[in-house]
Nucleic acid binder design. Structure first.
Length: 341
DNA sequence: TATCCACGGGAAATACAGGGAG
DNA sequence: CTCCCTGTATTTCCCGTGGATA
């Protein structure tokens, strides 16, 4: 019953965006001036909302439209991977001038920025999307982007408050001028229609019943990425006749897949720590540290302070939850809680 | 109250990567 | 190719702070 599996993957870009009408019109209004060639150095957008609510997808859709009607260039950078200013500069340079090669000396941030500045000076406008911007380790690149009159920044984060808390006053005051767009979770009804759309493109007609889609939507808790992953797994599992048990199995599988994706981004030490937290549940730092040191593949354990730094970072990534402060603090895996619903 | 010890900021040290010279 | 230089990223070290416990 499967015709085109590609449609059921995370990086498939649908030709229309459902249930984001208000968000799209707000963002279009923000981008309107630059598409008409105006220079508005205060223009920019801040987008926030949980995973699977269409933030990246909608942004990509808008940029495509913009490129069509006004020949405006853009670059989208995943700050989870490029989480330092210089990494962002390098990626940007590569986007703007694909021939860019690293030469001696250009690793310095200031020189990188000058290079970018040169390339942008003659262009009309350029949109820079910083996805997962809350993962950036320093905010230098934020300054530079909004100071630059040719750059219109679009910042995407999961939570508004946490992101703003990490910035200093100079940045936040500038961001207040941006249009802030909140992407909320989809309702079950909305998820169903999104799934219908994908199913129509990916599957034989009537391959999946309306009640099956409703059931999948119910398991996805407003997360379209999860919903689509469940549908993909269920269809693959089922062969010709999709029944409830296939959906149940697909939910498990989809959750595991998404978790696996997250874990692959972790370093060796972080993976071991995470493993000890899932295997032994909530525990104190000293318990966790002892287990980490005793782990088979660890012959030269890192120092306790380093473990604490890793745990802090993993808490930022929502992989670890910390209860309590100071001495009584305990650590636990966040994904278990999240997925055990 | 005294002691213990985890927290987290920050400086110093170390590990790592890319490019150029030979 | 190897070695060296430069700048970045990560780890270790140091330490002031303060909550928990006896």
């Amino acid at each position: 019953m499967l015709i085109d599996e590609r449609v059921l993957t995370a990086d498939f870009q649908p030709s229309e965006i459902l249930h984001r009408h208000d968000e799209i019109s707000t963002l279009s209004r923000t981008l309107q001036p630059i598409s008409e060639g105006e220079i508005d150095s205060s223009a920019g957008a801040f987008i926030w909302g949980p995973t699977g609510t269409g933030k990246s997808c909608t942004t990509a859709y808008l940029l495509e439209q913009l490129a069509d009607e006004a020949d405006i260039g853009s670059a989208t950078i995943d700050c989870w991977q490029q989480n330092t200013s210089s990494a962002v500069y390098h990626t940007l340079l590569n986007e703007i001038a694909p021939a860019h090669t690293r030469t001696r000396g250009t690793t310095a941030k200031s020189v990188l920025w000058e290079g970018l500045d040169d390339r942008l000076r003659d262009r009309a406008q350029f949109v820079v999307v910083l996805d997962e911007v809350d993962q950036l380790q320093d905010d230098q690149v934020l300054y530079q982007c909004y100071e630059h009159e040719s750059i219109t920044p679009i910042l995407i984060a999961n939570r508004k408050h946490d992101f703003f808390a990490g910035l200093d006053e100079r940045v936040t005051s500038r961001l207040r001028g941006y249009s802030a767009v909140h992407f909320r979770n989809y309702s079950d009804q909305e998820l169903v229609s999104i799934l219908e759309n994908r199913a129509r493109a990916a599957l034989r007609p009537d391959a999946v019943s309306a009640s099956a889609l409703a059931s999948i939507a119910g398991h996805a808790h407003g997360d379209a990425r999860l919903a689509i992953a469940i549908l993909r797994n269920a269809v693959r599992e089922a062969g010709e006749d999709l029944r409830d048990e296939h959906i149940i199995a697909a939910v498990e599988e989809a959750q595991t897949q998404l978790r696996q994706e997250t874990l692959e981004k972790l370093s060796e030490v972080q993976r071991i720590l995470f493993h000890k937290l899932t295997a032994h549940g909530e525990q104190s730092l000293s318990e966790l540290y002892d287990r980490y040191c005793a782990h088979g593949t660890v012959d030269e354990p890192v120092v306790k302070r380093t473990v604490r730094k890793h745990l802090a970072k993993m808490a930022d990534y929502d992989l670890v939850v910390r209860h309590g402060k100071k001495r009584g603090r305990t650590y636990a895996s966040a994904l278990e809680e999240q997925f055990q619903v």
